[in-house]
């Protein structure tokens, strides 16, 4: 059997450290996802209203965020704004800000799309029943929109989790960074550590994202 380099994981606290790194990645993603879903929903609803000003602002926001690589955004927020505005941001905070900016933009677009896909007649029949505007959204439109949103937003969430691997570039010690450290530290004793460690990282990412996909499939089935 070839040397796959799994042995390093058994040395000292290496495996636990790797798990800790995964924890950091998940913490950043979950906070960003939470913020993105809330803000994205609110902005998506606002966007859906036919206010030209809001439309223009949202359109530019989305385009800017989409065009810019997440890495550039991270650098701007972490290195750029801290220098220019003189505030102090930890790598993790900067990461959450960037991922929330990105997630909110994408989420609001998804919400807007889901709202548009619901026919005008649904609004009309709800209004015709004498429901107030908030009630129409709360009981009729949003429940339907959310059902349509599930597959799309799950896709976004898993994308966000995966993309947190970029935050090692601003010095956040997350799972990939920990993996690198372990491999570097064992360069002499275990030459093939890269394979085993990164494979473990892969499995960990998979285990983190898979339940989310499962949940989404379950919800989709229940609501069909």
């Amino acid at each position: 059997m070839p040397d796959m380099g799994f042995d390093v994981l058994l040395k000292g606290k290496n495996f636990l450290r790797l798990l800790g790194g995964l924890g950091v990645a998940l913490k950043i993603s979950l906070m960003s996802v939470l913020i993105s879903i809330i803000l994205g929903t609110v902005l998506g609803i606002l966007w859906h209203h036919n206010n030209l000003f809001i439309k223009a602002v949202m359109r530019s926001y989305l385009e800017v965020i989409r065009i810019m690589p997440q890495l550039v955004l991270l650098f701007i927020v972490y290195f750029g704004t801290t220098r220019s505005f003189g505030w102090n941001l930890s790598g993790e905070t900067a990461s959450v800000i960037v991922f929330s900016l990105w997630g909110t933009a994408e989420m609001s677009d998804l919400v807007r799309g889901a709202l548009i896909s619901i026919s005008a007649h649904q609004y009309e029949s709800a209004f015709a029943l004498g429901l107030g505007k908030a009630q129409v959204y709360l009981y009729v439109i949003l429940p339907q929109a959310i059902r349509r949103l599930i597959p799309l937003s799950i896709n976004l969430v898993t994308r966000m989790i995966k993309t947190t691997s970029l935050v090692l570039m601003i010095g956040v010690v997350e799972i990939i960074k920990v993996a690198q450290q372990i491999i570097e530290a064992n360069r002499m004793s275990s030459k093939n550590a890269a394979f085993g460690v990164y494979l473990t990282v892969f499995v960990m990412y998979f285990l983190a994202c898979w339940p989310i996909s499962l949940l989404a499939r379950k919800l989709e089935k229940r609501w069909r």
């Binding site: 029949s125 015709a128 004498g130 009981y139 009729v140 339907q144």
Partner: peptide
């Protein structure tokens, strides 16, 4: 005022995510 005006549409426009009973009871 709309609560006093019942309207029935050509394409029914029931709320697809609710049961028949919930559709009737909502408003």
């Amino acid at each position: 005022i709309r609560q006093k005006i019942g309207m029935v549409f050509q394409n029914y426009e029931l709320f697809p995510h609710m049961t028949v009973l919930d559709n009737v009871m909502l408003a």
